[in-house]
Amino acid sequence: MNPFPAVMIGGPPHSGKSVLVYALSQALRQAQAAHYVLRACPDGEGDWSQETPAEQVRLLRQKGPFSSAFVERVRRDIERRHLPLLVDVGGKPTPEQEQLLRACTHAVLLAATPEGLAEWRERAERCGLILIAELQSVLHGEDRIDEEKPVLRGVVSKLERHHPPNGVMVQQLAERLQHLFAFTPGELKEWLFQQAPTELIVDLDQLARADGITRWQPSDLPRVLAEIPPADLSIYGRGPNWLYAALALHAAPQPVFLFDPRLGWVQPPVVELGDQPSAALHWTLTPKPRFTWLEANPAQPHLDYDELQHVLAPALDPQHGVILSGKLPLWLLVGLALAYRQHPWLAIVQAQEYTNGIVVTSKVQEHRPGSLVVLRGNR
């Protein structure tokens, strides 16, 4: 039996679920409560949807219908979780999609009306979930707690995108989740690190604290790379995509493993270069005078690790640098970065910014790791 809880956040469409999940995740991070947010719907947006300008969210959102394959993949991800989960589900699950709810252990319900709460309460009970909270969502007014035990009930207000709430209800619910996710960081890491496939483990959270880093910046990259020996390694913790790519390229050709909360310790897939790239991704090539901008985005709502162990990516001009961008899981982005490591230099675009490429490896003096390649106005 999986020891980690999986808390479903459910409610009708447009009730503010994604904003609430983001606010709860931020509060749990501040409390150092280890967890992972799983967007269990095809248009799940992820934290970047709260941290990116509105026009960029529209550009990056991955829309698509539920499919049987998608449901089965997400159900499997929930069941084999390696951390406590917050699961953001769609607003209108079909009977087939309710297997995602049954894979969870607990439920937080959110709706604008009593009728919406009643519908989801019946669904949660039918799926055997332990109810933690029932919240009525309102745009205006203040939070209100009507009942604390056994179920937290009341009003949560101002669930507006780009203005995550921090009222009494969010705080109270976050505290309750923190008690549920009662694994100390030390206990969790000890359990996970025992399973790491390499002797050398790069703990990004510990590394950041040791260097006094509160938010990773590209300027931190040269110092970090100088501290890590170029050997086979396992990478654990929260960090931007460019940091993961830089560490993997620093270790190459030695093997690298990443900790994925859905999959455990995984190795990036083998990516080969050719003229007919894999159809699982949409590829957009933008040639520039000194580099090629390659954007890769999923061609389907969910990219399955087991089905993408061998990926074919476009062969690019070997004399030019490469900038990689797109909404990809870390294991696939790192696989792509490793495939292009023989180019003069390689940069990664971070989704939240989408204006600069951050150089992660280089053979030329002009572009050093941590430097920026300005992209604004280039497309």
Rank of each mutant, 00 (worst) to 15 (best):
142 E>V: 06
246 A>G: 05
128 G>K: 11
212 G>A: 09
96 E>C: 00
225 L>P: 06
340 Y>F: 01
34 A>F: 12
166 N>F: 04
50 Q>R: 02
226 A>V: 04
47 D>H: 10
107 A>P: 14
10 G>V: 10
364 V>E: 15
317 D>Y: 01
234 S>Y: 01
310 H>A: 07
96 E>A: 14
283 W>E: 10
54 A>E: 14
275 D>F: 07
57 V>M: 03
313 A>M: 08
71 V>A: 14
137 S>I: 02
75 R>L: 06
245 A>C: 15
38 L>N: 00
364 V>Y: 00
93 P>Q: 06
123 R>D: 10
230 P>T: 02
29 R>G: 03
180 L>D: 06
76 R>W: 12
256 V>F: 08
342 Q>F: 02
362 S>Y: 00
222 P>N: 13
137 S>D: 07
183 F>Q: 13
176 R>V: 01
326 G>F: 01
352 Q>I: 09
357 G>K: 02
1 M>L: 04
45 E>D: 14
145 I>H: 07
366 E>N: 11
39 R>H: 15
258 L>P: 02
71 V>G: 12
31 A>Q: 15
212 G>R: 12
146 D>I: 04
198 T>K: 07
109 L>A: 11
346 L>R: 01
259 F>Y: 13
60 L>V: 12
244 Y>E: 03
354 Y>Q: 13
154 G>S: 10
86 L>H: 06
319 Q>H: 03
65 P>I: 03
225 L>Q: 05
123 R>E: 12
267 Q>Y: 11
6 A>E: 04
160 E>T: 05
183 F>Y: 15
350 Q>F: 03
265 W>T: 00
208 A>I: 14
358 I>N: 08
140 H>Q: 12
255 P>T: 05
301 P>S: 05
105 T>Y: 08
6 A>K: 01
266 V>N: 00
170 V>T: 04
110 L>Y: 15
72 E>P: 14
217 Q>V: 05
12 P>S: 09
304 D>K: 05
43 D>F: 06
35 H>N: 06
311 V>E: 11
19 V>S: 01
17 K>T: 02
151 V>W: 09
205 D>R: 11
204 L>Y: 15
140 H>D: 12
71 V>P: 09
30 Q>K: 13
155 V>L: 09
220 D>Q: 13
83 L>V: 11
314 P>A: 04
265 W>M: 00
144 R>M: 05
286 T>Y: 03
99 Q>T: 13
3 P>K: 07
277 P>H: 11
190 E>P: 03
172 Q>L: 13
84 P>Y: 13
361 T>Q: 13
344 P>Q: 00
229 P>Q: 04
165 P>Y: 02
317 D>G: 00
376 R>K: 12
170 V>N: 05
36 Y>K: 04
211 D>G: 02
84 P>A: 09
258 L>N: 07
156 V>H: 12
67 S>A: 04
301 P>W: 06
239 G>M: 01
103 A>Q: 08
165 P>K: 05
25 S>A: 14
59 L>T: 10
353 E>F: 10
88 D>L: 02
232 D>L: 01
253 P>D: 05
89 V>G: 10
163 H>K: 11
254 Q>P: 02
74 V>E: 04
31 A>D: 13
93 P>A: 05
131 L>W: 10
288 K>C: 06
285 L>Y: 07
238 R>V: 00
14 H>I: 01
221 L>C: 07
112 A>W: 03
275 D>V: 10
